[in-house]
Design a protein around this nucleic acid. Structure first.
Lengths: 340, 340
DNA sequence: TCGAAACACCAAAGCGCTTTGGAAGGCTCT
DNA sequence: AGAGCCTTCCAAAGCGCTTTGGTGTTTCGA
C-alpha cells in the first residue's frame, strides 16, 4: 500500500493525502480525518526510503563505533545504550552504529554526513582537542558530545557529569579523614574524564598542601586486571598510599583482590572510593566491604543525550549549551580514618 | 556531485556511468576506466538513499533491541557487537539498532521488514519456540539466529555454541572428581542456552546415576548479586553441593563472595566451574582462585554472525544450515576432588 | 456587486539512483 | 552484399515520497 494507491482509493491527490498525514494546515479537517482513518485502516506507512530521498530526514541517530581486533568496546557502552534506546523507542528513532577503524574514524564521520545517513550523531569518550568534535562541528550535522573535550576554539553542546567535582569531593573526604598519601587509579589518561578526575583529586589535596606524585596516579584501560596491577604496584611501595580513588567499579574489583592478596584490609589499611556508573550487574554495596562511590547513572545520561539529539533534530534546541550533572558521593564501609 | 553531474561531465549517459561503476559487463573496459577514474577524482559516492529507493538494498543489518526501564541489556552484547562491528566494518555494513518495547518486539520486526530498513537481521538470546524466529522466517528477510530455539516446526540458520556439551564436560569432570552433589547456577531459564546447559549437567550426572534436584538449579539474570544469593542459598543447606557450575563469570564473582562470607574455601569446600564468554575486562585466571571455565569467545561469534549475514544478503549462503561451535574446557585451580 | 483574501485541493517536478527496452554501429558468416 | 549478432551506449521509466506553483471555489469587507 503506497501513497498513490491510497490517494487513488480516496479520490484525492497524493499532495493532499501527504499533507493530511503530515499535519499541514492547508487541508480540510474533515478530509484529514478521512485520510487518517483510511491510512490507519489499510495500515499505510510511508516508505522511509522514499521519504528520506525526498526530505533528507532519516529518523536515525548515528554513532561511529571504533572497532578493531585490539579495540575493546567499553562495557559502559551497553548501559548508555539502554538509556538511549529507551528514549529513542518512544520517539520512533533508530540508532545506527557505523563501525570504523579506531585509528581513522574521520572517514566514517565524513561518509555518514555526506550520505545523509543519519539526522544527528553523538560522540562519546572525548579527549582534549578532540578531532571528532571539531569535525562534526564543521560538517554541520546536529550532535551532542557525551562528556567534554577541552581546548577547542569553539563551543559545542555536551552532556557531562561533574567528574572533577566528584573526585574533588571524594579526595576531600579522604583528606579530612586524615589520609596524607592518596593515589588515583584512573581510566585512559588521554580522555577528558580522566583528566578531570585527576584534577579534582589534586585540587582537594592542594587545599591541604598535599600533592599527588607522578607515581601516585595510574591511567589504564578499565579492566579488573589493570586495577589489580595498579593496586599492587601502589601498595607494595614503602610509602604506600592509605587511600585510593578509583575510576571504575571493575577496576575496584582488582584493587580489592590486590588488597586481599597482600594480606591487607579495607578500610583498616586502605580506604577506597570508586566511581560507579550504575551497572545492574555489579553493585558497590555488594562488595565484600561495601564500596563508597561517586555515583552517576550512565543510563540516564544515555536517555538525556537521546532527548537532546531529538530536540536538535527537530530544531527545538539550538546553540552550544553544555550541561554538567552533579555526582552523588555515597559513603559506605570502604572508607575510614587513616591508619596511625 | 551526483550521477547526473558526473555523467554530464563525462559526456555519457547516467545509465552507462551507473553500469560502469557497478561492474556490469555491457560497458567498454576503456570507458569503465575513464568513469571509475573520474568518480574517484571527484569523490563521487552514490547517494545511498537514492540507491536504496531504487534497489531496496540498504547496506545495513538490523537488530531489535529490547528496551524498557526494567530491561537490562546484557553486557555480553557489547562483546558480541565488537566482533560484529569488526567484520561489518571491512564490508561497509552498518548496524541499525531498533529499540523496541521488550514485550512487543513483533511490531518492530514487522516495521523494519515492511519498511525495508535493513537487508538482514539477527536474533539473539532465543527461547524455545521463539516467536521472533518464527516471525522473521515468515516475513522472509534474511536472518541468522545467534543461539538456538527449539520446538519450531521449520529449520532456520543459526550459529550457536555447544552449551550442552560444554556443561556436560564440566559436570562429568566434577563427577569424576568424586562430587556427588552438584548444583547449577544458570542464566534466565526461559532461554535456550540455559536449558541446554542444564541438560548437559543432568546428562553427565545421570551417567553416574546422580540427579540434579529441583533446588539444585537456580535460573536468574546474570548479575553478581544473583550469583551471591544463589550460592548462599545453596551452600547454607545441610546437603550443600560440593561443586557448582555457573553460567557466567559475573555470577561467579558473587559465588566467590558467598563462599568467602561463609568461611569456606575454593576448591577445598567447593569446586567451581563457570562459563567464560571472554571479556577483556574480567578474566577467569585472575580470580583469587583461578577459575576453571568453559570458554567460548562471544566476540568471534559476533564476527561469524556478521559474516553469515553478509553471505545471506549477497545470496552466497542459503538454506537453513545451523552451526554449533565446540567449547573449550579450561581447567584452573578452582576444581578439586570432593571433600571427604 | 466586485475584488481580494482565504480555503481546499491538484498536477507535476523534483530527490538521485537503477533498470528496461531499445538503437546505432561494427563484425562475422554465407 | 545482406542477414544476423555482438558490442556499446542511451532515453526514459520507474522507486514512493515531498513540495512547488498553481487553480477553482468561498468568504468577506467595502
Amino acid at each position: 500500500m503506497n501513497l498513490k494507491q491510497l490517494s487513488h482509493m480516496l479520490a484525492l491527490s497524493q499532495t493532499t493525502v501527504s499533507r493530511a498525514l503530515n499535519g499541514y494546515p492547508e487541508v480540510n479537517e474533515e478530509t484529514r480525518r478521512r485520510v487518517m482513518d483510511a491510512a490507519k485502516r489499510h495500515g499505510y506507512r510511508p516508505n522511509p526510503s522514499a521519504r528520506r530521498l525526498a526530505t533528507g530526514k532519516t529518523g536515525m541517530i548515528g554513532y561511529v563505533l571504533p572497532t578493531g581486533t585490539t579495540v575493546d568496546i567499553d562495557p559502559h557502552f551497553v548501559e548508555f545504550l539502554s538509556g538511549l534506546g529507551d528514549y529513542a523507542r518512544s520517539h520512533e528513532l533508530d540508532l545506527v552504529l557505523s563501525p570504523a577503524d579506531a585509528d581513522d574514524q574521520e572517514t566514517t564521520y565524513r561518509r555518514i554526513v555526506a550520505n545523509r545517513q543519519v539526522d544527528a550523531v553523538y560522540i562519546s569518550s572525548p579527549r582534549p582537542a578532540d578531532r571528532r568534535v571539531a569535525l562534526v562541528n564543521t560538517l554541520g550535522i546536529p550532535f551532542i558530545v557525551h562528556g567534554r573535550s577541552e581546548g577547542l576554539d569553539f563551543d559545542y553542546p555536551f552532556t557531562d557529569i561533574d567528574n572533577e567535582g566528584a573526585f574533588h569531593e571524594a579526595a576531600r573526604l579522604l583528606v579530612q579523614l586524615g589520609h596524607r598519601r592518596l593515589a588515583l587509579i584512573n581510566g585512559d589518561g588521554r580522555e577528558t574524564f580522566a583528566i578531570h578526575r585527576e584534577r579534582g583529586v589534586r585540587r582537594a589535596m592542594a587545599a591541604s598542601s598535599l600533592v599527588l606524585g607522578e607515581g601516585d596516579v595510574c591511567s589504564l584501560a578499565m579492566t579488573e586486571e589493570n586495577g589489580y596491577r595498579a593496586a599492587r604496584r601502589l601498595l607494595e611501595r614503602s610509602d604506600a598510599p592509605t587511600a585510593i580513588a578509583c575510576s571504575s567499579l571493575i577496576m575496584a574489583l582488582g584493587v580489592v583482590r590486590a588488597v586481599r592478596d597482600l594480606g591487607l584490609t579495607i578500610p583498616g589499611d586502605l580506604s577506597l572510593i570508586a566511581h560507579d556508573d550504575v551497572f545492574p550487574w555489579l553493585k558497590p554495596e555488594n562488595f565484600s566491604v561495601p564500596l563508597s562511590t561517586t555515583r552517576s547513572s550512565i543510563r540516564l545520561a544515555g536517555a538525556r543525550v537521546a532527548e537532546r539529539l531529538a530536540a536538535r533534530i527537530s530544531g527545538s534546541e539550538q546553540g552550544a549549551r553544555g550541561e554538567v550533572w552533579p555526582v552523588d558521593l555515597v559513603i559506605r564501609g570502604s572508607v575510614a580514618g587513616a591508619p596511625t
